[in-house]
């Protein structure tokens, strides 16, 4: 499992444009807020709290093609699955690497962005905690959607249609500062469902 994590992290490190693209995408969506709604500080604060979740959802959606597809197409997935009898280890390592590569950079850049939008320390910490918990749940969902749609090539819109309804509860509870506990519950629930479904999808495609 650690080998798999190390391998994926190294692979993404050597093609390091990956982090850069998702972070820029995230920042650019948020930069559109003042252009679209004006620069009143109260309004910006309010909008930032909501749009940050939309930006997170979109930047997870655009990475969904990169979780299993490369390994599936060059045949590495079969080899990994033959070596590891328990696919769940592979799935968990993919969760970890996907979160590290695509969500951690967003969380790192978040405090800087929130100061650009006039949020104070307390609000930034609340948003950070909510995004930290919610991003895990969203990563679990993105993983199982990616594993289920391995056979459907070039269907990023279809994947978005599948994923956005599943993201709705996260966005509702995430944009409210006080409901981190419900968000944690949702993330745990999505972990339980996701690990079964991802392993099921990978077994189907691995056969």
């Amino acid at each position: 499992m650690l080998n798999l994590i190390k391998r994926d992290l190294l692979l993404s490190f050597y093609s390091s444009a990956n982090f850069f693209f998702t972070v820029s995408f995230f920042v650019l969506i948020l930069i559109l807020i003042p252009f679209a709604f004006g620069t009143q500080s109260d309004q910006l604060k309010l909008l930032f709290k909501g749009v940050v979740w939309i930006a997170l959802a979109l930047s997870i959606i655009i990475t969904v093609d990169r979780i299993y597809n490369a390994d599936y197409e060059d045949g590495n997935l079969d080899i990994i699955m033959q070596k590891n009898r328990t696919i769940e280890y592979l799935v968990i390592s993919k969760y970890v690497t996907h979160w590290f590569i695509y969500c951690l950079p967003l969380l790192v850049i978040l405090p800087i962005l929130s100061f650009l939008f006039y949020l104070d320390y307390l609000e930034t910490i609340q948003i950070f905690i909510n995004l930290f918990i919610g991003s895990f749940g969203m990563v679990f969902i993105a993983n199982f959607v990616s594993a289920l749609t391995l056979g459907a090539k070039r269907t990023i819109f279809l994947k978005a249609i599948i994923m956005i309804p599943l993201f709705v509860p996260f966005i509702i509870f995430g944009s409210d500062a006080g409901s981190w506990s419900i968000l944690l519950g949702l993330s745990m629930l999505s972990f339980v469902i996701s690990i079964y479904v991802t392993a099921y999808g990978l077994r189907l495609y691995g056969e």
């Binding site: 289920l148 749609t149 056979g151 459907a152 269907t155 279809l158 599948i162 479904v197 099921y200 999808g201 189907l204 495609y205």
Partner: peptide, 17 residues
């Protein structure tokens, strides 16, 4: 999703999930 996956036996299983 059923229409997008070319292997139809797989497609039914996936879309059922």
């Amino acid at each position: 999703l059923w229409q997008a996956i070319s292997n139809k036996e797989l497609a039914s299983k996936i879309s059922a999930a």
